[in-house]
């Protein structure tokens, strides 16, 4: 009886220390699960597989990448939100999971804004708006004129209804006062041939996706959503230049998140680890090749950015009437 009680006390003590006393200097004390909500082979997966080993060498613990797919990333996101807030279960997110899904989905398994602690932006990608090379409009202004003259006749593609890239196109057409039809595909890979075949006339994605087709002359860029013009394509105007600065709040970013309630020291430590990893020549070269940008946010700055972005997206999504039951 006595023995049992002591054992119980010891377990209780152990439990207390493991919840409150996850000492940041001991962290990480066991392998880290890096969860992502999408299938192997996609951009989020590629980033996870590159950042995972880099984190491993920064933190000195195994980092295990795990794909938990389903419901446009909601399944993976919710599983991290519900995990022990000790920094050993982390989410590598795509922007759409955090700032778009809460407004497109009628019901969410968790609230990504408040149930997660936002650690760092792992990668950022400027959005490029591209069109088919045969489309007569020579540049973005001409494209907008053309679409205005033919309301309801021009189509744009999306990698799935409610995806961040769908919302970006909706935001563009709301602010430019255009009327185009959204055609939904299962991923950008399925939409690309239709764009090359001029079945759809506009699509949004990162530069890495489009560059080979710009070079081959199948597609042409319309504009880039970035503070400045992209140095490889200096003739392509920015969103601000063509009169839709509102889109600037959006980009195709990828982030690192922990469950809400994770000790601040651990969040800081992870933020620093990401910063160090991205500064290594190896990763910064890979990021360059993938058309990804390093944005140095503190956890507070990252959280603030997410709040701003999701406020804008909430309104865009409500106006466009995008709703996933």
């Amino acid at each position: 009886m006595m023995k049992k009680r002591i054992l119980g006390l010891a377990t209780a003590l152990l439990a207390v220390t493991s919840v409150t006393g996850v000492l940041a200097q001991d962290y990480p004390s066991k392998p880290i699960n890096l969860i992502l909500g999408f299938a192997p082979g996609g951009t989020t997966d590629i980033i996870a597989r590159l950042i995972g080993p880099a984190l491993e060498s920064e933190l000195g613990q195994r980092v295990i990448v795990e794909n938990r797919t389903g419901a446009a990333g909601n399944v993976g996101m919710a599983s991290v939100a519900a995990a022990e807030p000790d920094g050993h279960t982390l989410l590598l997110s795509a922007a759409t999971q955090i700032v778009a899904n809460p407004f497109t989905y009628a019901s969410m398994p968790a609230d990504p804004m408040n149930d997660l602690a936002h650690v760092a932006m792992v990668a950022d990608a400027h959005l490029f708006f591209a069109t088919n090379a045969q489309v007569p409009a020579a540049n973005a202004e001409k494209f907008i004129e053309m679409v205005r003259a033919r309301p309801g006749e021009i189509n744009f593609g999306t990698p799935g209804a409610g995806n961040l890239l769908h919302i970006a196109s909706e935001l563009f057409q709301q602010k430019a006062g255009l009327q185009m039809n959204a055609v939904h595909y299962r991923g950008t890979g399925a939409a690309l041939p239709e764009l090359i075949a001029n079945q759809i006339q506009m699509h949004v994605d990162g530069i890495a996706t489009f560059m080979p087709y710009f070079e081959s002359g199948d597609l042409k860029p319309l504009f880039v959503v970035a503070p400045e013009r992209y140095d490889v394509l200096p003739d392509v105007p920015t969103a601000t230049e063509i009169g839709v600065p509102e889109i600037n709040v959006m980009s195709n970013w990828y982030g690192l998140h922990a469950p809400a309630g994770t000790p601040t020291e651990i969040v800081e430590k992870l933020n620093q680890a990401i910063k160090n990893a991205l500064a290594t020549p190896e990763l910064s070269q890979r990021w360059d090749e993938l058309g990804l940008i390093v944005v140095d946010y503190s956890p507070e700055e990252f959280t603030e950015r997410l709040v701003n972005e999701s406020n804008v997206l909430e309104e865009v999504i409500a106006t466009a009437g995008v709703r996933i039951e």
């Binding site: 951009t43 590629i46 597989r49 590159l50 890495a208 560059m211 080979p212 087709y213 070079e215 081959s216 199948d218 890979r286 090749e289 993938l290």
Partner: peptide, 11 residues
Amino acid sequence: VIQGIQPGPNV
């Protein structure tokens, strides 16, 4: 892509 090859019309 992980290997640094971007497949496309010119690959």
